[in-house]
């Protein structure tokens, strides 16, 4: 680790101001950033911690839409979101281990957009709205590629708004070493159709399996996917699995998510 300064603003406005200085970087749980710093792979001059900003913490109901503050920890979502969003709560409860879930935040996860992270699949499958310090962005427009988002320099995720699905579930097939998603599939059923978001599998990061969505919108049943296959093109090949394997798992995990959805 290299030396750096740290600021702990208590308001969103102060955080945004602090992030204007050169080489400043937000710290929101640090479950990716801190190991990166420890390995001397990054050298920000200043970290701006978002965890003391009370207006960014907690869950609230906004007319049937679940709003989760960007600095809300995974454990809180796991414990409090289950009533309206059981798939989302189940996902949060299986991120990492207890230590990770008591540090990592939803805003940090979504802003980092790790191609194997779980939360991007939830946001995309729900058609969530990403709220930042300056605007609102639809999930469909937010995730723009591996470790890449629509966020501008110094823009922070202050909240994520999740519409309530009729049924939802997340199935994660873990990469054996990291236990990140090798393939994670979030299925969410809404009155106007089904959304299927896949994480872990693609070189472009989280994506929607639209063919699966169409089939499931017509018939929300695992059997509806029987004739379909997922192309391996653009899928990740690494030590833990080939592109073919990941493509295969997308369908397997989608079926399991549909079967488990409630």
């Amino acid at each position: 680790m290299y030396a750096f300064d740290i600021e702990r603003p208590t308001t969103i406005a102060d955080a945004v101001a602090a992030l204007k200085s050169d080489e400043a970087q937000p710290l929101s749980g640090g479950q990716t950033l801190i190991p990166t710093l420890k390995s001397r792979l990054a050298a920000p001059s200043k970290l701006v911690s978002l965890s003391s900003i009370s207006e960014m913490v907690g869950l609230s109901d906004e007319g049937g839409v679940l709003r989760i503050g960007g600095a809300t920890k995974h454990d809180t979502v796991a414990k409090e979101a289950g009533g309206s969003h059981p798939g989302l709560a189940g996902l949060a409860g299986k991120i990492g281990d207890p230590a990770v879930r008591h540090r990592g935040t939803i805003g940090g996860s979504i802003a980092n957009n790790d191609p194997a992270a779980c939360y991007p699949a939830a946001a995309l499958a729900h058609g969530a709205t990403i709220v930042t310090d300056r605007r609102e962005i639809a999930a469909d427009d937010f995730f723009t590629g591996m470790f890449d988002t629509a966020l501008e320099e110094g823009e922070i995720v202050t909240a994520v708004k999740f519409p309530r699905p009729e049924a939802s579930n997340y199935q994660k097939f873990e990469q054996p070493a990291s236990r990140f998603a090798m393939v994670g599939v979030f299925v969410a059923k809404f009155a106007d159709g089904v959304r299927v978001a896949v994480t872990g599998a693609s070189e472009d990061g989280v994506f929607r399996w639209t063919e699966g969505e169409e089939a499931l919108s017509a018939n929300f049943s695992p059997d509806a996917l029987d004739g379909l296959s997922v192309s391996a093109e653009g899928m990740i090949t690494d030590l833990h699995g080939s592109a073919d394997y990941r493509a295969h798992l997308v369908k397997v995990m989608t079926k399991r998510a549909v079967a488990a959805a409630r």
């Binding site: 054996p176 070493a177 990291s178 990140f180 030590l239 833990h240």
Partner: peptide, 11 residues
């Protein structure tokens, strides 16, 4: 070494 961290070496 591809399996150089616990992200890729499965204990």
């Amino acid at each position: 070494l591809l399996s150089a961290t616990y992200m890729d070496y499965t204990m």
